[in-house]
Amino acid sequence: MGPIKKEDVMNANLVKILDPYSAAVLGFNVAILPDAKEQAITDNIRIFTNNVIYRLLEDYIEYAEIRKAEETAKGLSELILPAKLKMIPDFIFRNSDPAVFGVHIEIGTLYPKVTLITADGKKARRVHQIQDKGKTLEKAVKGSEVAISIRGIEIGRDINKDETLFVNVPESHVRQLMGKFLDELTVDQKQALREYIILQRSMQHPWWGM
Rank of each mutant, 00 (worst) to 15 (best):
M1W: 07
K5G: 06
E7I: 15
N11E: 15
K16M: 14
K16D: 09
L26Q: 07
G27C: 14
G27W: 11
F28I: 10
F28Y: 15
N29V: 04
L33K: 13
L33E: 15
P34I: 10
D35Y: 07
Q39L: 11
A40F: 03
A40Q: 01
A40E: 02
R46G: 03
T49Q: 10
N50F: 13
N51T: 14
Y54Q: 14
R55Y: 08
Y60K: 11
E62W: 04
A64R: 09
E65I: 15
I66W: 09
T72V: 14
T72G: 06
A73K: 11
K74Q: 14
G75T: 07
L79P: 01
K84W: 02
P89V: 04
D90V: 05
D90L: 06
F91L: 15
I92K: 00
R94H: 12
S96E: 13
D97V: 10
P98G: 06
P98H: 05
A99R: 02
G102R: 10
G102E: 06
G102P: 10
H104K: 15
H104W: 11
I105Q: 00
I107Y: 00
T109S: 10
Y111N: 05
P112G: 07
P112D: 07
V114I: 13
L116T: 03
T118Y: 07
T118H: 08
T118G: 14
A119C: 08
D120E: 15
D120L: 11
G121V: 04
H128Y: 10
K133Y: 05
K133C: 07
K135W: 03
K135H: 11
T136L: 12
K142Q: 13
S144H: 08
E145Y: 01
S149P: 04
I150N: 03
I150A: 03
G152V: 09
G152D: 04
G152M: 02
I153Y: 06
E154T: 15
E154Y: 06
E154S: 14
D158E: 12
N160Q: 12
N160M: 05
K161P: 02
D162I: 08
T164K: 13
T164A: 07
F166D: 01
V167I: 12
V167D: 00
N168A: 15
P170R: 05
S172W: 04
S172Y: 09
H173V: 08
V174D: 01
V174T: 03
R175H: 09
K180P: 04
L182N: 13
D183H: 11
E184V: 05
E184T: 10
L185P: 03
T186I: 08
K190F: 03
Q191K: 15
A192C: 09
L193Q: 02
L193D: 01
Y196E: 01
I198Y: 02
L199W: 04
R201H: 09
R201S: 06
Q204T: 15
Q204W: 11
H205L: 00
W207K: 12
W207M: 13
M210W: 05
